[in-house]
Simulated assay, not measured.
Amino acid sequence: MRHFSQANPFGPGCDNVPALLRRLADSIEGLGPAEIQDVVIRSEPTEYGSWCSGTVYFHLPEDENKGQNEG
């Protein structure tokens, strides 16, 4: 399984969940035909509010064939 993580820029606005979701959605669209397994959103308290980040877990179509061609 593959994954990537993204966060809002640190500082004022780091607690903007809609901005984080847009950022994650743009990245997911950029993957092409990926099968999304899970999306995890977390936050960490800071002086600017909760610093939001997200991790997307996914498979790409070529991952399905990788195990079939081995051994």
Rank of each mutant, 00 (worst) to 15 (best):
M1C: 07
M1N: 08
M1L: 15
R2F: 05
H3V: 01
H3S: 15
F4G: 05
F4S: 07
F4H: 03
S5F: 04
S5K: 15
Q6W: 01
Q6R: 12
Q6M: 13
Q6E: 14
Q6C: 09
A7C: 01
A7N: 02
A7S: 11
N8M: 05
P9G: 00
F10D: 02
F10R: 11
F10C: 03
G11N: 09
G11T: 07
G13V: 02
G13F: 04
G13W: 05
C14A: 06
C14P: 02
C14Q: 11
C14I: 07
D15K: 05
D15C: 05
D15M: 03
N16M: 06
N16I: 00
V17A: 08
V17L: 15
V17T: 08
V17F: 10
P18E: 01
P18S: 02
A19R: 10
A19W: 08
A19C: 01
L20C: 03
L21P: 06
L21H: 10
L21F: 07
L21Q: 13
R22Q: 11
R22H: 03
R22E: 10
R22L: 14
R23L: 15
R23S: 14
R23D: 14
L24N: 11
A25F: 00
A25I: 01
A25L: 05
D26H: 06
D26P: 00
S27P: 00
S27V: 00
I28E: 02
I28K: 00
I28G: 02
I28R: 00
E29T: 13
E29F: 12
E29Y: 14
E29N: 13
E29G: 09
G30M: 00
L31E: 03
L31Q: 01
L31K: 04
G32M: 02
P33K: 14
P33Y: 11
E35Y: 13
Q37G: 12
Q37M: 09
D38T: 09
D38R: 15
D38Y: 12
D38P: 06
V39M: 06
V40C: 08
I41H: 11
R42V: 02
R42C: 02
S43C: 09
S43A: 15
E44K: 14
P45A: 15
P45S: 14
P45N: 13
T46Y: 04
E47N: 07
E47L: 07
Y48P: 11
Y48G: 11
Y48R: 09
G49E: 02
S50V: 04
S50P: 12
S50A: 15
S50H: 12
W51T: 08
C52V: 14
C52K: 14
S53T: 05
G54L: 03
T55D: 01
V56D: 06
V56W: 00
Y57S: 07
Y57V: 02
F58D: 04
F58I: 07
L60M: 15
L60W: 06
P61E: 09
E62H: 12
E62C: 04
E62L: 09
E62M: 06
D63K: 01
D63H: 06
D63A: 09
N65C: 07
N65G: 14
G67P: 02
G67K: 10
G67E: 13
Q68H: 09
N69A: 15
E70A: 13
E70M: 08
E70I: 14
E70D: 13
